[in-house]
Design a protein around this nucleic acid. Structure first.
Lengths: 234, 234
DNA sequence: GGAGCTGTCAAACGATTGATTCAATTTTAC
DNA sequence: GTAAAATTGAATCAATCGTTTGACAGCTCC
């Protein structure tokens, strides 16, 4: 009976996670109480401590569940790109694509609305170092290290320090735009039905690529200027 | 007697403001209690409500005191630039300079350390719309409108919507880099004594200018490519 | 010198916080 | 079916939250 699809039925534990995700995204990590969460989930106040040990435990799980798949997909995409191209340098656009496209993948996988997903991402990136759960922070460090090396190869002639600065500038552009995506999408999307994540990704990549590239030596005849933009999808 | 310079003597009210600024910057607006502030200021718990009406009143004052001068200087600088150049289009770099240089001006004026000043700025920008005191938000809206028009003139051929997106990408790069400035300055600054705000401004402007400019028509023979970069200081 | 204003203080307010207890209940395992 | 384990529920914990109160001191002004 009740042939429910996938993850319905919704045990208390899952309902707590879903309620927490929505509330944390909407109001910020600090402004949501355990009671807010349990009330929304239709559960008892003690449920959070029973299932997750503490409020912090639930918070860590919510964060890890949303951002870790993104970071893992980033690494996988970068791996795939580098495997495909051999030892050569990747165009900056492709590295940037590997960096941001996972958001598009995961927003579709998430039960969260697009708006809330990006709000949550924005809040997570807004956290200072050390305010993230260790399991999340560790993966972040790995990701940034891997992409630093990829960018260094794509942008020869730039000092390591300069690469770091540009990566932070690039990441900041991404984060802030994501966090305010709902505001922007309202302004945008006047003509076409769906403003579309794809268009947002494209806008970001073009902006960031120009910023990352300025002043750098071009890595030998790679697809630039009029190059074949057919390789990737934007 | 007691020929104190400027703002010494430090009445309770001022000590509260200073304590609040440092704590809000360091730990975030939500994580600082009234008691944290009064304890640090060496004042009574009731002092905040007596002098500022409420915690929120003090918070609004702290925010306004730090960011409003920045926004006013932004407008003043943009006015000055446009007055100087007449009706013509400004190079993007100059508009960007008017946008970020006020931070360098105000960080020197602030009693806050450079690190805390930027942390505070980062936290303010991280706030969602409507979470800022009205007097701060209103000035922000004015500033963004004025710069939108300036950028539109500097980057002819771009749709208004596209300008907005690029401005958000640009602002995000600035905010995030500012918020993590202490982390970055630690990595950077290995060789020269002072990594220097000036170098940070320069890095940001070059990055953002490239991103803002990409794909746009150049506004007729303005200083580009090899142009006279003597006009402004970076 | 006393009325009046300003500021500070200790104390307490009710509300809310995250967490815990323990009995009652449901689910699972055999 | 029944014992064991997992989960839920209502009640309550101490701690902390922002705010308020009222007494008291310092000061000015007339």
């Amino acid at each position: 009976m009740s042939a429910v699809a996938g993850n319905s039925k919704a045990g208390t534990k899952q309902k707590l996670v879903e309620a927490a995700e929505a509330l944390f995204a909407d109001e910020g990590f600090d402004r949501v109480s355990v009671r807010d969460i349990t009330t929304r989930a239709g559960a008892n106040v003690a449920a959070v401590n029973y299932h997750f040990g503490s409020r912090e435990g639930l918070l860590a799980l919510v964060m890890a569940r949303q951002i870790n798949p993104v970071n893992e997909e980033r690494l996988a995409r970068l791996d795939a790109l580098e495997r495909k191209i051999g030892g050569k340098a990747l165009p900056v656009e492709e590295v940037l694509d590997a960096f941001v496209r996972p958001f598009a993948t995961q927003v579709r996988r998430s039960e969260l609305s697009e708006k809330l997903f990006f709000k949550l991402m924005g809040r997570m990136f807004g956290q200072q170092g050390g305010e993230l759960p260790p399991v999340v922070e560790a993966l972040f460090v790995t990701v940034m290290g891997r992409f630093q090396r990829a960018f260094a190869k794509s942008l020869p002639g730039l000092a390591v320090e300069e690469i770091w600065w540009r990566m932070h500038l690039m990441a900041g552009a991404m984060i802030h735009t994501m966090a305010q995506a709902d505001t922007l999408q309202r302004v945008s999307g006047g003509d076409s039905g769906t403003p579309g994540i794809e268009q947002t990704l494209s806008r970001f990549i073009r902006f960031a690529a120009a910023g990352m590239r300025q002043g750098a030596d071009e890595p030998r005849e790679e697809s630039r200027s009029q190059g074949p933009q057919v390789e990737f999808s934007f």
